[in-house]
Design a protein around this nucleic acid. Structure first.
Lengths: 144, 144
DNA sequence: CCATGCTCATTAGCTAGGCTAAGTATTGTG
DNA sequence: CACAATACTTAGCCTAGCTAATGAGCATGG
């Protein structure tokens, strides 16, 4: 349908605009020395999964393996993630958050959220509900 | 309220997760040689406004002026944006899309949107409506 | 009327994060 | 056992962000 096509086109553009500005704004609210967006996201995935191989983590985070190597490298430097050999497959590696990783994660996650959560509190419950639903839809679309 | 606080915290996290994955997914769908996310966004703002100073554009795009200098530099290299001196204030510069900029913009915008629009078409009208509302809310929050 | 201080834009220099291509080690298989 | 496939890393490139510093132009108060 032409109507749907137009609606989807318009929405695609609006959504991209909204997201780019929104993420730049959130990025600006980052305290110095804190974990970056990508690092925190990777650490979160590891936290939730318990342990993952680099490939699994890369797929989950929707980046290429070399990119994940870099991100994990930063986390490892800071002692937040540990690489251990895979028990049966010598090619693979197991990534898992360290105790410190879990602690630092909880702290930074909270700090990182502070600004955004405060902003979101100023919205109406209906608006928050809309955002929650939108987040679910975006996750689904991203998953492909 | 504790309820609101918790809801906002949870939402903040969910939303960040959704957005980071969503944008990486959209980025992957970019054709080679195409304008990047940031370049297209800047060109869009210029297009809509007609003409802006670097400072105004930086504010609108929520980046620092040096960052905008870079982005505009790329657009200028490709002949899509022209810098002209400000009529009364010698410090300032006027940025405006060239004719080619307008043409290339329309083309790339469309190409850039294609994947996303196709995905969005597969959603229900209600879901699209939710995303549209969410986009509006995010713009508002980003605006501060 | 000009010295001083502000604003605008840019340059320089850094970091993170993304990619592809290529290299290395290990596994699996014909 | 040779060879293909897989997993991860390394190397090298680019974009996009930032801050700090520079240079140029404006505005203003003595």
């Amino acid at each position: 349908m032409t109507t749907e096509r137009t609606a989807a086109d318009t929405l695609a553009k609006t959504l991209r605009d909204a997201i780019i500005r929104f993420s730049r704004r959130v990025r600006q609210a980052r305290p110095v020395g804190d974990l970056t967006f990508s690092q925190l996201s990777a650490l979160t995935s590891l936290q939730l999964a318990g342990a993952l191989t680099p490939r699994e983590l890369a797929d989950m985070e929707r980046v290429q393996p070399p990119t994940m190597t870099k991100i994990v490298g930063k986390l490892e430097e800071r002692g937040l993630v540990a690489r251990t050999p895979h028990p049966t497959d010598g090619r693979q590696v197991i990534l898992a958050p360290t105790d410190e990783g879990r602690a630092v994660y909880a702290f930074h996650e909270r700090a990182r959220n502070e600004w955004l959560a405060a902003e979101l509190e100023r919205l109406t419950p209906e608006e928050r509900e809309t955002l929650a639903q939108a987040a679910e839809i975006m996750q689904r679309v991203a998953r492909g």
